[in-house]
Design a protein around this nucleic acid. Structure first.
Lengths: 351, 351
DNA sequence: CTCCGGGATTGAAAGGTTTCACAAACCTGG
DNA sequence: CCAGGTTTGTGAAACCTTTCAATCCCGGAG
């Protein structure tokens, strides 16, 4: 007897208190506790205080699963990003987080690491969790999995990519325009042979940026052979560095005097290998990056880059998603932002 | 009549199919469907096929909330990181993700952005979600909120920090040792006046690294005045750059010839401002960073840095957490890894 | 032919919250 | 002091899955 009592007292896990326990402790009905939680204005101040005291005393924590179960959907938004190690996406996520926080929603961030399979696994999980909606920068925006997801009722917003159909909202930046800006700037600086560093071309972002560069060349009366492709398997610093080696190996007659990189990671890698190989920047090689991540400005030769409104991109995407899930008369929208060229030392004509 | 029928057909949201609908469609009981899902081996192949066909036909998606409600806990791990924009933490998260994936768990990544308030909000949310456990690099490891959380039954693992008590597991890297390595290296290179760039000192990481540097100086017979403090409000590239301005302003008699930065972001900022101010690195100023993020090696003057096993840090933390939540006889462990100095051009003695 | 054992299947209960129709208590003015 | 209206509080149903004891059915042994 005494033993049992002392066991009770020493019990380490008194099983989390629920709304029912709170009701009992406060001497009110279960429904009233729920009202305190969800519509405090419909409960008298006196009772409310009593209930709140009971909650504090018991260390009550709302059970979100039960809540969701009843509501049919959660208060969680998710972002499936393409590359967790690219600061660009981190910044996009920060923008989403701000918007989500304003509506008292949480943001669940997942990283597909550019792996279609991993992306699919996350989407399955998220659907099972009945997240309120999914923000995604997809490996492949045309994947039927996305359409399926939307068809089954989960709102999906495509980020940093456009999708032809009108099944989803999307927020993107005009990458063709960005490529044009970059290339035109290099042309203005007197370059006529430009390397395009980037890949794989399965990524729409890469395709579009290259396409833009090509257009700028054509507009200047130069043929497509003035764009020298240096394809990379991925968009990492390492790949950029490798591209630099290849570039240096080209015969000087045909070697480009400028390079346009599909993102800043590549550009930073290229910059590094130039330093290692004794090619001065911008005199020996002018370099333009893309995204204008913080490290671009921080590089020792600050990088000229095409800036995207990354924070706004994320914020707008989240806002569209929230709007879609709350407004039944919602119409899908395709928002496109314009990029902007930020000129820094890596392309400044040396006198 | 006809009208109603056609309405039925056109209904856009036929309300997600549940286990019950599947059971009806397959002509079996609800319990059997559950068995197919959870213990397929106890169901005859014939029935199983039938059920699986029904699931596919109805586009059945398991409802995780209901599942959780029954189970009492979810299959989600969460990492509350200190700074989403610092690649170090991103890499730690990647390590966790790998470990989580192996156990078929999801990782929910949140960013406290070094804001105690935001951290608290996330912790509240996560507790409400009944996540299986929380990994956290806390703003303040001694915060009572963490102990509370653990007391109420949520497992907590402290990452990149140690906590005196034994309430939690923790995984950390010996920052004092790291500071020592960095400073000793600079002393070996002949420097005797070393700047310490970093802050705020409320961050244990910063305190410890500074402490280590101090020890190395003392061991070399140099007084604490040989360590020149350049305090920064945060650990960003911008702060590092500002510190550079201040450093350059010091009278040349007392100006340090080397700088040890509390992390790589600061070091990159410092590097940039040196370039802008015409201070050559390492001849004019040797620089050591901390973390060895990818951008450190990618900087145009590759950065000497103290490498932490960041991927392993994350993986181990997640493994400990999983162990803690699955093994009832679990004993809290404090794992400490040793850092390693990676020497690059930013400190190489010129000739 | 009956009985038994064991695998396959079933049905009901449980888990914590929200919602909603309803009951109770209170207040106002006549 | 009462009718009628408003403000508070109540109780039960519903959300979807899992679990587990109970039942069913089948073939084989006696």
């Amino acid at each position: 007897m005494a033993v049992e009592d002392s066991n009770e007292v020493a019990a380490p896990a008194p099983r989390a208190a629920g709304i029912k326990d709170v009701a009992a402790a406060a001497g009110v009905s279960l429904g009233t506790v729920s009202n305190v939680l969800n519509r405090p204005e419909r409960v008298s101040p006196k009772t409310r205080t009593k209930v709140e005291a009971a909650m504090a005393a018991l260390g009550f924590v709302r059970n979100e699963s039960a809540r969701q179960l009843r509501a049919g959907h959660s208060r969680v938004l998710a972002y499936v990003m393409l590359d967790g190690r690219n600061p660009f996406f981190t910044d996009v996520a920060a923008g989403m987080e701000d918007a989500a926080a304003e509506d008292d929603l949480s943001l669940f961030v997942c990283n597909s690491a550019n792996l279609a399979e991993r992306e699919a696994a996350y989407l399955r999980r998220l659907e099972q969790q009945r997240v309120q909606g999914v923000l995604i920068t997809p490996v492949d925006p045309d994947s039927p999995a996305l359409a399926e997801l939307a068809r089954r009722g989960t709102s999906v917003v495509i980020v940093d990519r456009k999708r032809p159909g009108t099944d989803h909202c999307s927020v993107a930046v005009d990458d063709v325009r960005g490529g044009e800006l970059a290339a035109r700037h290099l042309l203005d600086q007197g370059h006529t042979r430009i390397a395009f560093v980037g890949g794989p071309l399965t990524l729409g972002q890469v395709r579009d940026r290259r396409e833009g560069a090509l257009r700028a060349l054509l507009a200047a009366g130069l043929g497509p052979d003035h764009l020298v492709d240096l394809a990379t398997p991925q968009l990492t610093v390492e790949d950029g560095s490798n591209a630099g080696q290849r570039l240096a190996g080209l015969p000087s007659a045909t070697r480009p005097t400028a390079a346009f990189c599909a993102n800043d990671l590549l550009a930073l890698g290229l910059l590094r290998s130039c330093a290692a190989l004794g090619i001065s920047v911008p005199a020996g090689l002018a370099i333009v990056g893309y995204d204008d991540i913080d490290f671009a400005a921080a590089a020792t030769v600050p990088l000229t880059s095409v800036r995207q409104p990354r924070h706004r991109l994320g914020r707008t995407a989240a806002e569209l998603l929230i709007q879609e899930t709350s407004d039944p008369g919602h119409v899908h929208q395709q928002v496109t932002y314009l990029p902007e060229l930020v000129v820094r030392a890596s392309t400044l004509r040396t006198k």
